[in-house]
């Protein structure tokens, strides 16, 4: 699968930091998103996902560090970034007094790469009434309009900030279908943040977990799921664990039961665990993305 993505990274963050006074919202974030891949950014509320996205779109000035999108430095070439990136924010602020048709007419002239036919297609598919004013549109319709504006100019990169949060299941499905239909063709890059881990699992080639502004893990989705296991060990009477193996992201001892979530799990790791600790029995189970996510966060918070 490695040869699948075109060369170069679509998005590159180096030491990106945002500080407000003494609180650090994004802390030295570095990651790279290959072109043509779909990248899922997940994290608890307040982890800094939205702030990161705003910085890479040039909507917020970082305190330090840099962001490059399609090779352009966001701080100096933000116009080039905006011309080739479609952005769908969490809350839309489209001019409420404009009609849908006027919004489309307004935005159309701002992009060289606008595709009229695609726009018409999407207006039909999303069942948007050209004559309705934005202030009279339902939340789902506004979200679809926002998506239309982001993809009708055929961007190289699509950035979505919590795109389906608060949507009913039907609109969510229509929205995701719209994204997949128009943009996901292996050449375009998609970065999205979401609380819906099922969607992340379905759509993301790679996933990154943000916790309190810091990058906790960044991995290929399937690899993450395959290599992270939950080990439940029953300890011998009156004994406590002696040492946890490397790669433990979360652990808990409750009576005689020692539960650990281990990343990069292997037979060797299990062997060493059994050798170094007073263990009676051991079971290993696979985890879903939600469990892995929760364990990473719980593990982080236990340390701090």
């Amino acid at each position: 699968m490695s040869g699948q993505f075109p060369a170069g990274s679509a998005i590159e963050l180096v030491g990106l930091t945002k500080r407000y006074g003494t609180s650090v919202v994004v802390d030295r974030l570095s990651l790279s998103v290959p072109r043509g891949s779909t990248f899922g950014l997940i994290g608890p509320n307040g982890a800094g996902k939205s702030t990161t996205i705003k910085m890479l779109m040039g909507l917020l000035a970082p305190t330090s560090g840099s962001a490059r999108v399609l090779g352009f430095d966001v701080a100096t070439r933000s116009r080039d970034v905006r011309r080739q990136v479609g952005y769908v924010p969490e809350t839309h602020q489209i001019y409420r007094w404009m009609r849908v048709g006027e919004v489309v007419g307004f935005v159309k002239l701002l992009y060289d790469s606008w595709d009229d036919r695609l726009c018409e297609d999407l207006l039909d598919r999303f069942a948007l009434d050209r004559n309705k004013r934005v202030k009279h549109l339902s939340k789902g319709a506004i979200a679809k309009l926002g998506l239309l504006l982001a993809i009708a100019h055929k961007p190289e990169v699509l950035v979505l900030d919590e795109p389906v949060s608060g949507m009913d299941p039907i609109i969510r499905e229509e929205f995701l279908e719209g994204v997949l239909q128009a943009v996901a063709d292996g050449r375009r890059t998609i970065l999205f943040s979401s609380h819906n881990l099922d969607d992340v699992r379905r759509l993301a080639d790679s996933v990154a977990i943000l916790c309190e502004g810091r990058l906790v893990v960044h991995r290929d989705t399937d690899a993450l799921l395959a290599s992270t296991k939950r080990v439940t060990a029953v300890l011998k009477d009156g004994c406590l664990p002696r040492g946890a193996p490397e790669g433990v992201i979360w652990q808990r001892v409750a009576r005689r039961e020692w539960s650990l979530t281990i990343t990069d799990f292997s037979g060797e790791v299990l062997g060493r665990l059994k050798d170094e600790n007073p263990i009676e029995t051991v079971t290993v189970e696979d985890l879903g993305l939600e469990d892995i996510f929760k364990d990473y966060i719980k593990g982080r918070r236990a340390v701090e």
Partner: peptide, 14 residues
């Protein structure tokens, strides 16, 4: 005032 500046901000015009 109506935050539509935030919408304009991520569109191409400088």
């Amino acid at each position: 005032a109506d935050r539509s500046a935030e919408f304009l901000a991520y569109l191409p015009p400088s």
